[in-house]
Every structure is written in structure tokens, then in C-alpha cells.
Design a protein around this nucleic acid. Structure first.
Lengths: 247, 247
DNA sequence: TTTAAATGTGTAAAAAATACACAACGATTC
DNA sequence: GAATCGTTGTGTATTTTTTACACATTTAAA
């Protein structure tokens, strides 16, 4: 094997590189994409936003929302742009999850992708572009997808389960005013487990981040529950002391 | 703005892409590197493995161990290769942490990097290559580094603090047989906080993952402590039930 | 023999997590 | 308007976990 300095064209010995641009020119380049895993919540079911793959080899399988990273584009920006271009939605806070780099993950050759994740309220974000059969798909009903997207989705789903217990992401999925039952349904759907109703309420009550808006549910065929707002302001202030939720 | 299908050269309408390779050819390509953040522990201090940057613009600042990702190389493999080439060490388990993509992070132009992290026992892994002044550097004494490496290091340090409470990584940093005091020093160094000695011991005792080897410390100028081994076997078996350590 | 410096150990108090049941409410039906 | 249905709202006892804290013991060194 050649010496590393020789192989990558760096100077040997003690001399310093004066022209970094020349150095970067010698770097191999790879196609890089971003895939957005957008989770949503509707009818007490966790959903993910998908399109139909337009690659023949994937024969109509579903695919995450992905695209290339452009020249000089930061990954965060790429994720936001892709989401905007594919769905018409902006102002979604996406978080980087991890990269996937298996050499055979794309049938057209080596393409590395970085997965981004977010959770949104399906009602509050109308899909303005419906190309490629863009739609919300139940997470639980998926098993095969285009590329390695099922693997990415599974990874992001686990990431989300952990994340939602450390940060109050869940409130983005609910209407501004929500009942305790809606909140609990949300956590149960994401964590994929039943939770004790009284202990659930106790836990959130003790956090002191819910504001009782003195209203009750409407149009429910039973005793309506009280409505709450999430105290985003207080949360932002005390963010540093936030220790998370544990179920 | 052009339609996304036009911009990236995809087919419009319902037709399927038959040649994925042709499609990938149209993707913009970016230089991609991997940076390894290797943490070690020595003399009760958390250290990180660094080299001297050979870019003039960084005037002798310290740098992480980084290099390009090669064609068709998986990121995990790249990280292992880089570590091997730079230090001579293999069989180090590196974990992907996240990507850093600020367009101006490299003075030579747009270079995206993926950070990988590991924790090793400095005594057990001799540095076989010392090019570029490769050496172990105290984490606490750093503040400025080449590129955005200080930012990457800081991020990885936080990642590590979290990680070490969820997985027993720390045992990789200690000799096979270690005293409770050594173990506690390690946790204190990484978490950067003092821990109560009795509660610390109680916590580890209750996990049942330490094996008393019926030996005591040697060459200490005070009462020697008992030595333990970590029960890797039992941990691997019960990994799924592992709930972590919490300080 | 004394001193210095660390080890080894247990308990009480506080906090957090869990399990669990019944009355009150509103909507619907008859 | 009475009865029924389904869900809300609430509290307590038990267990588990976390925290705070002190003294006798052991070895090396002086």
C-alpha cells in the first residue's frame, strides 16, 4: 500500500500545504443525497410521507422523499429544500439522523444518503404537491420499500421512539389545543405500547408544561375531556434542565 | 424554479426510469471525508488522538484523523481504514456520530465530513505510526483546532457522555482487571463531574456485570483495592435488557 | 509504632415509578 | 326524563430507585 501522503496527494515531510483548493481537487467525489423521513399522526396511527419510486427496478415500491445535495448546499438546507420541492411544505424542523453508505444501496451505483427526520401535524400541513403519488402511509403496514429505505425508516422509527422521550417533539403532531387522551394516543402510537392512563396524566401534570385552556372537547360521543396547550415558552426557557419523559 | 423532475433529469409523467446508472450520472458529486474522534484515557484524564494539520492556513493547529472516502467504500470501512493508516491500529469499533457540512468548513472548498467516534485503552493500543506528530491530547486543554474540528470534538464529547451511560463502553478503556476507583475515575473524567463513591459502587454491584477476580491492586501507596473484570459475556447475553447507567 | 491515604461497607430518608377502582359527566337511546 | 354507554377525572398504597452521609479497616511509608 502506498503511503497515505502519496496516495491522497499530500506533501510529505514537514512542508505545509499552501493551496487547500488544489488539495480538495484531488479528493474523490461521491454522489450524495438526503432522504427525509417525515412522520405524521392521524387517526391514532403513526404515518410516514412517501412517494412511489420511479425506478423500474423497484416496480412501484414506496420510497422516502429524497434528492441530491446541491453544490455548496448544507445538508440541513438540502433536507428543507427537498421537503419543500416535494410537498410544498416549509418551516419544518428536520433533524439529521445518520448516513447510509452501503455501496449497493442504489441500483445505479454508489450513492451515499443522509437521513433526516421530523414529526409533523398532518392536519396543519397541507400537501401542495402530489407528484409521484405523494401520500401518508401507515408505518406499521410497510415491510418492503425501494432502495434501503425500509432499513432507513426502521432506524428512524427507533430513533424517534428514543427522541420523543427526551424532547417534547410530540406536541408538534397535535392541534394547538388537545386532550390528554389525544396526547396519550400519540405516545402509544409512537412507542407502540399501552400506557397507564392515570400515570401518564400524572407524569405530564408534574412537568408543569401543559396549560389548561378551560375548554373541553367537541363532537365526541362521550364525556368530553379538558383541552390543554403545550407551554412552548416555558419549555424553551427551561430547556437546559429538561430531563425527559420516561415510560 | 424549474420542476424537480426537470432539474435532476428525471423523467416526467408516469414513465419509469429504466437505467438507474444513467440517472446517478446526473447527480452532483461532493468530496466526502471521514474524521475519527478517538478518545482514550490515561492518568485519569480523557484524551483524544490528534495530528498536526499540514495546511498552512491552520498554522500548526491540531486536527482530527481524517481522510477521503474512497470509491465504493462504505463509511464504516473508511473510518477503520483511516485509523489503520494513520495509527497502525485495527480492530477498533468505531461508531458513526453525524455529518458536518457547512460549506465553508474546509478552506479548500466544499467538503462534507462524517464523524466517527471510539473509546480505547491507550495502553493496549500502541501507536505504530507517528507521522504528523500523532499524539494523545488532553480534551480539556483544547479550544481551537483546524477546520471545524473543535466543533466536531465538542459534539462527539457530548455524544460520548450520553453514550457511556447507555452502553458499557468505558470498560474498553481500562485494563482487563481494574479497581473500582479506576472505574470511577474514568466515569468522572468522561462525565466531567464528581460521583459519590458508595453509590457508584452500589450501582455497579447491582448490575451484576463485574467479576471479582480475588486479586488486589499492586504498587499503590495506600490500601490496595480489589480488582474486577467486566463480564462481557453476560452483558452480550442480556444486552437486550440493558437499560443503562444513570448518574 | 505511628501516620497518611485510601478502601470497604449500610442505612435512613426522599423521590419516583407502579398498580389499581370508582364516582362524575355528557351523549345517546328509549 | 330515565337508563345506558363510554370516557373522563382523580388518589393512595406499595415498591423501587436515588440520594446523602460516617466510621472502622487496610496497606505503605515515615
Amino acid at each position: 500500500m502506498r503511503n497515505i501522503a502519496q496516495r491522497i496527494g499530500r506533501n510529505i515531510g514537514g512542508e505545509l500545504v499552501k493551496d487547500p483548493a488544489k488539495l480538495v481537487d484531488t479528493y474523490p467525489k461521491v454522489p450524495l443525497t438526503v432522504d427525509c423521513v417525515l412522520f405524521g399522526f392521524e387517526e391514532n396511527v403513526l404515518k410516514v410521507l412517501l412517494i412511489r419510486s420511479d425506478l423500474q427496478v423497484f416496480d412501484g415500491l414506496w420510497s422516502l422523499l429524497g434528492d441530491n445535495v446541491l453544490d455548496n448546499e448544507e445538508l440541513d438546507d438540502a433536507a428543507n429544500r427537498i421537503l419543500r420541492e416535494r410537498t410544498g411544505m416549509s418551516d419544518i424542523y428536520l433533524e439529521q439522523v445518520r448516513s447510509f453508505s452501503h455501496p449497493a444501496r442504489h441500483p445505479g451505483g454508489r450513492v451515499i444518503t443522509v437521513a433526516y427526520c421530523s414529526l409533523i401535524n398532518i392536519q396543519h400541513h397541507q400537501l401542495k404537491i402530489l407528484d409521484h403519488e405523494l401520500h401518508w402511509h401507515e408505518v406499521q403496514s410497510l415491510n418492503k420499500m425501494a432502495f434501503d429505505h425500509y432499513e432507513i425508516l426502521t432506524y428512524c422509527n427507533l430513533w424517534l421512539q428514543k427522541r420523543i422521550q427526551e424532547h417534547p417533539l410530540g406536541f408538534n403532531l397535535l392541534p394547538e389545543k388537545f386532550s390528554m387522551r389525544e396526547l396519550q394516543n400519540l405516545y402509544e402510537a409512537i412507542l407502540n405500547q399501552q400506557l397507564d392512563r392515570r400515570n401518564f396524566r400524572k407524569k405530564f401534570a408534574s412537568m408543569g408544561l401543559l396549560i389548561d385552556v378551560n375548554e373541553i372537547e367537541d363532537n365526541v360521543p362521550h364525556r368530553p375531556g379538558k383541552l390543554y396547550k403545550f407551554n412552548f415558552e416555558k419549555y424553551e426557557k427551561n430547556k437546559r434542565n429538561w430531563i425527559g419523559i420516561d415510560f
